[in-house]
Every structure is written in structure tokens, then in C-alpha cells.
């Protein structure tokens, strides 16, 4: 990184650290913090969409759709979601490959599941064999986002369902009295008003989502935890920057990062609650 970094063995203390902390692997470590933020930025809207879908399904008048919505939220909420994080990426990955296998290799005569092996024809491999490592990383990351969306979508769906029921009945009756159709009343009255009721639950889910991000590690993605372990472990003098076991400092840094994100989110949601609550007849707005 810096010009004076050519021979780290001879550097004085602070310059050694300056070089050490800007080495290539450390830049990858810093990048993994960005990846966490990207994951949050992608998973949160995806979970919101899944959740809204789930909540609308739970309100559907057609019973099988309603059961689908209720089943989705009930199953995901009833099982430890770590199990889901491990399960969804493998299941979806195998599902995609099996589907592509049917489409692309109709003449393949061997079964896909051979005993304990899962084998599809080479054309159906996702990502294709020989693709660069960033493609594989991106594919793994997308599956992870999907797993987060499925799990947190169920939480969000439950919260939104409750929030929709919390909107005063009179509001919907008024909308009907004005001659709005069910869909119009939903879009114009119910959906805009439910947010204030949903906000405490959603902020709670957001906090949990933040704390779920280190689980990326379990999916084999080179995330914060991976790099903290990798960089912190003791390095012998064969390495450019030898040092003893520093993992505890790396994990301390990660811990502080999460505390900072949680703290910032808390302040953000306090402000947002005040803002969304404007113009609504709640105890909070009556006090202002």
C-alpha cells in the first residue's frame, strides 16, 4: 500500500502497523464489512416483499391461498432458522440443478441421486464448471440472500399481518362507504396506515437481521468471521507480517462494528417512528 512497505522486518512500530493493516488480505477483510452492508441492503427489501406477499396471502379470501400463507409463516417460525440457513441454499441449489438437468439433458439415463451422490449432467451445473471464482461467490451469495429473504420474510409477514389487523376497522368501513373496491381500500387506506403499527415489529426484525449476518460464514462465504479467523491466527516468521494469536482483537473489532450498526439503527428507528407517526391519532402524537 505505502511506498515504505517493501521490507516490513525493518520498519518501526507504527509504520509496521500501517503496512500490516493495509495489506491485501486486510483489504479483503474490510471489503467483507461492505459485503455485510450489501447483504443487509439486499435482504431487507427482499424480506419485506416476501413478507408483504405472505401477509396478503394470509388475508386472501380463497382458502388454499390463505393456508399457503399461514403454512409458510408457521413452518419458518417454528423451526430454528439456523436449520433453514443451512437447508435453503442446498435445497434451492439442488432444485435449480435438477430442473436444468431435465431441460438440458433429456437423454441422460442415469438417476440424479445415485445412492448418496447428487450428480447432474455437466450442462446443468450451476455455476458452470470452470467459471471464475467470483461467479461462484456471487452465486453462493445470492443463495444466501434468498435464505435470508425466506426466513425473514416469514417474520415480516407475521408482523405485517398483525399490523393490518391493527388498522382501525372504521377506516376500512369509511373507505367502503366512499365506494372504494377492496383493492382500492387496501392500497389507499390499509397499506399506508399499517406502517406505524408495523414499525416496532419491523425495527425488531431489522435488529435480528443485523445479528444474523455472521451466519454467512456457515454458508461457506468468505465473510467477516472467515477473515477474522484467517488474519488473526498466529503467523510464523515465514509470513511477511509475523505475529502471535491476535484473533481476539479481530473479533473485538467485529463486535464493535456490530454494536455500532445496532446503535445507529436504534437512533434511526426512533426518528422514523416519530416521523411516520405524524398525523395519526396515537398516544405518541397526542403528546407532541
Amino acid at each position: 500500500m505505502f511506498a515504505f512497505c517493501t521490507d516490513p522486518d525493518t520498519l518501526p512500530q507504527w509504520q509496521w502497523f500501517a503496512c500490516y493493516l493495509t495489506s491485501g488480505t486486510h483489504l479483503a477483510f474490510y471489503w467483507s464489512f461492505v459485503v455485510v452492508m450489501i447483504l443487509l441492503a439486499l435482504a431487507a427489501p427482499a424480506a419485506l416483499v416476501m413478507g408483504l406477499g405472505g401477509a396478503l396471502l394470509m388475508r386472501a379470501r380463497f382458502a388454499p391461498l390463505r393456508w399457503l400463507g399461514q403454512g409458510y409463516t408457521a413452518i419458518v417460525r417454528g423451526v430454528p432458522d439456523i436449520v433453514f440457513f443451512l437447508f435453503v441454499p442446498i435445497a434451492v441449489g439442488q432444485g435449480i440443478e435438477a430442473l436444468l438437468h431435465q431441460v438440458r439433458c433429456p437423454h441422460w439415463d442415469m438417476p440424479i441421486w445415485q445412492g448418496n451422490d447428487f450428480i447432474v449432467c455437466p450442462e446443468a451445473r450451476v455455476p458452470p464448471r470452470g467459471s471464475p471464482s467470483w461467479v461462484r461467490d456471487l452465486y453462493g451469495f445470492s443463495l444466501a440472500v434468498l435464505a435470508f429473504a425466506v426466513v425473514f420474510g416469514a417474520f415480516v409477514g407475521n408482523t405485517l399481518h398483525g399490523a393490518m389487523r391493527a388498522v382501525p376497522r372504521a377506516q376500512m368501513e369509511t373507505a367502503e362507504a366512499y365506494g372504494m373496491t377492496r383493492g382500492q381500500a387496501m392500497r389507499r387506506v390499509l397499506l399506508p396506515q399499517m406502517w406505524i403499527y408495523a414499525l416496532p415489529g419491523l425495527s425488531n426484525i431489522w435488529m435480528i437481521l443485523i445479528k444474523a449476518t455472521p451466519l454467512l460464514f456457515l454458508l461457506g462465504i468468505q465473510d467477516i468471521v472467515y477473515w477474522a479467523r484467517e488474519l488473526g491466527g498466529a503467523k510464523t516468521s515465514r509470513y511477511t507480517y509475523p505475529h502471535p494469536d491476535w484473533r481476539v482483537w479481530y473479533f473485538l473489532a467485529v463486535l464493535v462494528f456490530y454494536l455500532a450498526v445496532t446503535w445507529a439503527s436504534q437512533i434511526f428507528f426512533e426518528r422514523l417512528t416519530r416521523r411516520v407517526g405524524r398525523g395519526l391519532a396515537t398516544a405518541e402524537s397526542a403528546r407532541a
Binding site: 444474523a212 455472521p214 468471521v225 484473533r247 467485529v254
Partner: peptide, 22 residues
């Protein structure tokens, strides 16, 4: 309370383990 509620348990495990090892 803030420290233990505000950070992932997963990271807490890693942090404490690497501290215990030392």
C-alpha cells in the same frame, strides 16, 4: 445489557473462545 443484546451471539462465541485460548 447493550453489549450482549447488540451484538450477534455467534460473534460473542468467537470472541470469547479466542480470548479463552490466550
Amino acid at each position: 445489557i447493550f453489549v450482549f443484546r447488540g451484538s450477534p451471539l455467534f460473534i460473542q462465541f468467537f470472541f470469547f473462545y479466542s480470548a479463552f485460548v490466550l
